[in-house]
Design a protein around this nucleic acid. Sequence first.
DNA 1: GATTTACTGAAAAACGTTTTACAGGACCGT
DNA 2: ACGGTCCTGTAAAACGTTTTTCAGTAAATC
Lengths: 369, 369
Amino acid sequence: MSDKPVSIRDVAKKAGVSPGTVSNVLTGRKPVNKDLADHVRKVAADLGYQTDRLASQLRTGKAQIIAVLVPDLDNPFFTSIVAAIEGCVSQENYEIIVANSNDDEETERSRLAAILAWRPAGIVVIPSTDRFPNRDLIERAGVPYVIADRVTHSPQADTVSVANEEAGEMAARHLLELGHRRILLAASVLGLGNMRERCAGAARVIEAAGAPAPEVLETGLTFDVASERLSKWLDGHERPTAIIGFTNFTTLGVLTALVERGIRIPHEMSVIGFDDYKWMCARSVPITAIRQPIQAFGQAIWSRLRNRIDGDTGPPMRVYLSCELIVRASAAAIGPKGPRTSNANDGNEQDNVREMARPDAGTGVKPGA
Amino acid sequence: MSDKPVSIRDVAKKAGVSPGTVSNVLTGRKPVNKDLADHVRKVAADLGYQTDRLASQLRTGKAQIIAVLVPDLDNPFFTSIVAAIEGCVSQENYEIIVANSNDDEETERSRLAAILAWRPAGIVVIPSTDRFPNRDLIERAGVPYVIADRVTHSPQADTVSVANEEAGEMAARHLLELGHRRILLAASVLGLGNMRERCAGAARVIEAAGAPAPEVLETGLTFDVASERLSKWLDGHERPTAIIGFTNFTTLGVLTALVERGIRIPHEMSVIGFDDYKWMCARSVPITAIRQPIQAFGQAIWSRLRNRIDGDTGPPMRVYLSCELIVRASAAAIGPKGPRTSNANDGNEQDNVREMARPDAGTGVKPGA
DNA sequence: GATTTACTGAAAAACGTTTTACAGGACCGT
DNA sequence: ACGGTCCTGTAAAACGTTTTTCAGTAAATC
């Protein structure tokens, strides 16, 4: 109800000191007599004073704001990353601004501009495209940022991503061990670095095993077209014995396409999905999947960004985290008999985060097909 | 790279005018000669000037920030609402700050305090508890806010929610039409108004049909305990023929509990879920569910909040939106023969948003059991 | 005992805007 | 010619902080 919020001046007057002293007491930037400090603190508390962060951070130059720009706020993978980051930063008195680029380069640009006008302390962005041309906006503004997930290395900026090739390898190896040889890789869009790497990892292992090079199908970025394309593809091609979905949406697409075609899992088709969600277990044949370490992801992003905010001017770093294969029932041994699930879960639980300086920057991985 | 961002003073100097004039040109708050205005705009564009929103909004008093406080950022329902709101507000040059209360009253309070320090233009909050005692913080700050989802009416504030009773009725009626009489209602926590209302709606319809009053099971707020409690309950009670999950997490819990017990859907148990997600269709027996109108939800929240920000001082409004029953295969007719699905989808597609002033405020709905 | 040093806190400048107050014309009607 | 009203733009105040500068006192050093 009280229209004007209580200001530092009010506190100062009531406490009989100068505003500067109140500031020094509250921020602790300059020492002030213990007794007086206590008094000021008490008055501030009594008045319910809350420092106006707008004003405070106008003066100090940077806002305690971390902006997170994602390509799709309706994709639970991205929101889970936002959640993980929020958990980290809120403990250090930062606030999070979210923006949605809708996988569109133009809106990405405009959202980025709007966000930069807040002079945020840092930005984490999951680019809408691999090249991320809108980077120039951030760089011109001189705001620290890290690129996450989709772009796995960049000569200009820190990147945090998953060990994509390794993830692809894990999935493929699991299928090979189960006897599969004709494997379909379902990626969202090969224009994305992480997709190329996952496919490359899988393809390498598969070919190394002497199996035919896997086919790669691009299912697009949304769920709806994913299942559609999958269905169409299944109609027009010799049927593989296993499919790896390299994205949560593609996994969902694979699953519904199989339902539509009446192809049963795992008897007629083995499936490995990406990401680990509750619904994967809420089925009679729970889904074997590659789990991305979301919490660690968020922490790694924040820790990198934090360093930059604190003034780290070292060369761009590339951080990547290992995924984990969660063996369940949707990938089964091939052969005359029915499903036989394996539980060769050798996931390396600890030490799943590595950092490396980047001498090797810029060497993109070729698509697997 | 340029360390100091270009300020309005720089533009003014280069354009040969005063800072005030630049401001007037850019904000359009006072008229300025057309030619001069164009010139200023050009200079501003050349210099890549972007007004510092911190400074701007310090002066004007309120930040173009909408804070969204949700109980669980890992729950896709809540994040989908955030996404819907973000879509609305970003078009009007507002930015969204998200905060996670983690379903805990204390962290809710501290997050709220942190958020209020930004002097946001408005707040939308999905309270962690029904009573929402932390409301006092917002009210003391005098910031407009709307309460969403969980609390469906409040004498002090606008509420936007779903037509919960109606939703419960729809689900129950569908099951009754399919011949079910012993129905279990799975709610998250009956301390939440929306849960009580959904249960009440279902219970009323069921009892009106002469069927025994339905049992209500509280499954808790997280997925893990949900399935656990469900499993335990199923062991200790006579088995119903149908279950309604009144939350996406409880639905997931129901589904996995049934999987664990080897109870098949819909042959041995019919299930109606809540919310509409992709995974519900990615199964051989897709899930019949109550869909909440997420987009409309976000729009209604924003429109209400917008009005308040613009100075609407009318009495608190209660807005509620109708849900839709999506008939699929997980709820089947009971009887000697196997599953028979109905497609009696009479959902009222249009006119699913209503507003009403609140003379009836404060009359809570009783829990259904 | 004089001079430095250390400490404490007040006063004022600064951050980048917006807004208010005002000044200088031009234009109008008398 | 004169006072009034527009019109357009400048100068300066203001927003609520933090930071810098400085003054006054007490302690320490010679």
